[in-house]
Design a protein around this nucleic acid. Structure first.
Ligand SMILES: [Mn+2]
Ligand SMILES: [Mn+2]
Ligand SMILES: [Zn+2]
Ligand SMILES: [Zn+2]
Lengths: 146, 146
DNA sequence: GAAAATTTTGAGAATGATTATCAATATCTA
DNA sequence: TAGATATTGATAATCATTCTCAAAATTTTC
């Protein structure tokens, strides 16, 4: 995986810095959705001086490079998660509209993915879009908020 | 349709005010995605004094009441569109990650909806969620941004 | 390996969208 | 109509994110 990433950094003419490595490490360790603020706090435990701006810059970069997925759960801030490239562990989200909890699901991904691919092709052709990714969100109330 | 909405307002113990009516009119006339700012500007053409806060409050209320759908296209602000209750004209979105353009699509909605209903039931049971809605976003580059 | 060129970073200010406050108005209820 | 309740507009406040810019780190060139 390290190798894959190095390649990505080269492709983008970007340097793999200690700060960026640390951010990647955090996502590998935590394996969950993190906001910029949360990453910042975790990062400060590893390194003395970190600027909020650097966190935002790097989360943005890593997202553009495809190493992170940027998610919006409707709570006013962006969330990020590791893009599990290999093996491609595809999943989507169930979001509680009251408490904001976001749960991963990967049920029916096989069937889902087949369907979405078909749709993607159709839409790309019809609307002249080169589609690169998709997100599905189910909104509702979790059992604690019902 | 007016009747449906009146009912909704009663259910929520809310009043149908001139301001709210004007906002609904705007969405009926424009029939497209509008940000709070855009609604505010259009609203000022109809009524002298309007506060930004009132616009936000009402967009929020109308969304909770199910008359509007709140959409996030990743450009840092929320967008709203009329929820076409009857006939239920279901659609989702294709979003250009460069220019932010958002295109409606309703291809395969029949098949899609059947599939999503099945998935929704499965997920609701398994994760103990009462699912109320969903959104699908396809991200990519439109023809002008390629 | 040192100097020059390039990239990245941290600190803080600035921005922009959204929310909170609160007194004045409008609407509903009895 | 009086009293209760809901809504509004103006403004300030908040919060996430972006900008600015000089210092530090890294890479490239000689
Ligand atoms: Mn996830
Ligand atoms: Mn739409
Ligand atoms: Zn919840
Ligand atoms: Zn575009």
């Amino acid at each position: 995986m390290k190798a894959e990433w190095k390649k990505q950094f080269n492709r983008f003419n970007k340097r793999m810095t200690p700060c960026r490595q640390a951010i990647i490490d955090i996502f590998e360790e935590k394996r969950k959705h993190l906001s910029a603020e949360e990453v910042y706090i975790l990062l400060r435990k590893k390194r003395r001086k970190v600027g909020m701006a650097t966190v935002y810059r790097n989360l943005d970069l890593l997202s553009q490079m495809g190493l992170l997925h940027r998610l919006n759960f409707g709570d006013g801030k962006e969330h990020y998660e590791m893009a599990r490239i290999s093996p491609a562990k595809h999943h989507h989200h169930l979001v509680c509209t009251r408490c904001g909890k976001a749960v991963d699901y990967s049920e029916l991904v096989g069937e889902e993915h087949e369907f979405l691919n078909r749709l993607e092709k159709k839409l790309g052709d019809k609307y002249d879009f080169s589609i690169q990714s998709h997100q599905i969100y189910f909104y509702g109330l979790c059992k604690d908020c019902r």
